[in-house]
């Protein structure tokens, strides 16, 4: 929890300069004041919503001159699971990857608009993308453990962050327990991670991501390479860890979005007739029940009822 306090105190200044200053400061103050804010203000109507962790305003991502996704406006709230759904090519993964600046790895990628993390502009030139990725961890589509031991997989993040070696054992145990993997692997921590099953590897990747104590976990179709049993375990795991982390998940599986998420963003792609390229856009973003039962937009309804996509 001290990371969170660090962040909020550090972010205090920038919050004051933020556009919707007053409202956000109140929220941030709540976050800083209490580590159990999720259960705190439920009775209070004004604080019914969890504080905003990620705020996107008119966010567009370009690859060269091609606009891959445009005009994304959404707020990701603390201790919630936010799902992004939509057909292929709608830009949901692109948006996800712009959140922890993984898109920086693509030389031509460029972001326009405003993307704030606790009020801090993530694309400010003064922001170090490496630090961003420590605070905003990522789990990828295919399990990608390092070809090292289970233990070394978990400790790599803390090691490069300069965490003293003496804390490694505790970090490994804590991370693996949170990823519901400890009981299965505690006796073979020194064995290669590549000897594990796919589902175990993906939980190891989750453990590896939370070992650096991030605020936010981004998951890019984390279950698409897994069987239904392993998928179920990951979904249960997400429910358990959302009390500590804010999760954003991209999924192709609408049932999964409906099962696990608190909020859902529906993206779609519009085809430019001139060059046949697809630009993604955010159609609707709301509470998950609303999206799946009574969406405001016809396109959302068509998609969630299976008439399109």
């Amino acid at each position: 929890m001290n990371i969170e306090q660090n962040l909020t105190s550090e972010l205090g200044e920038s919050l004051e300069s933020a556009e919707e200053g007053d409202m956000r400061i109140t929220e941030a103050a709540e976050a800083a004041g209490s580590s159990t804010m999720a259960s705190d203000g439920v009775a209070d109507a004004a604080a019914e919503e969890n504080p905003t962790v990620l705020a996107m305003r008119d966010l567009s991502v370009y690859y060269g001159s091609f606009r891959a996704v445009r005009d994304v406006n959404m707020d990701v709230r603390d201790n919630e699971i936010t799902a992004m759904i939509g057909p292929s090519g709608c830009g949901k993964s692109t948006v996800l990857r712009s959140i922890n600046r993984m898109n920086d790895l693509i030389p031509t990628a460029r972001v326009e608009g405003d993307l704030r993390f606790h009020g801090v502009d993530l694309y400010d030139p003064k922001v170090d993308p490496v630090e961003v990725r420590r605070r905003i961890g990522m789990v990828f589509q295919k399990p990608n453990p390092f070809p090292k031991s289970i233990y070394d997989n978990i400790t790599y993040g803390p090691k490069i962050a300069g965490t003293p070696k003496s804390e490694f054992d505790a970090i490994v145990e804590k991370s693996l327990k949170r990823a519901a993997l400890w009981d299965e692997v505690k006796d073979r921590l020194s064995e290669s991670a590549l000897g594990m099953s796919g589902g175990q590897q993906q939980r190891l990747c989750i453990a590896r991501a939370i070992a650096t104590s991030p605020d936010v976990l981004l998951m890019d179709e984390p279950c698409s390479a897994l069987d239904p049993i392993a998928t179920g375990m990951i979904e249960d795991l997400m429910q358990e860890i959302k009390t500590r982390y804010t999760i954003v998940i991209v999924t192709h599986n609408m049932q999964q979005a409906a099962r696990v998420s608190d909020r859902t963003a529906f993206f779609t792609a519009e085809v430019d007739g001139a060059n046949d390229r697809r630009t993604g856009l955010l159609v609707e973003y709301d509470k998950t029940e609303k999206i799946f039962s009574n969406p405001a937009d016809q396109r959302t309804e068509n998609y969630v009822t299976g008439r399109f996509g």
């Binding site: 993984m102 490496v130 453990p145 490069i160 962050a161 991501a209 070992a211 650096t212």
Partner: peptide, 20 residues
């Protein structure tokens, strides 16, 4: 995927090259 894994946990480019 291995590069992304390295960058994903907050490694610098040099660390990704050297360690992975």
């Amino acid at each position: 995927a291995l590069r992304e894994a390295g960058f994903g946990v907050g490694a610098t480019k040099w660390e990704v090259i050297k360690d992975h």
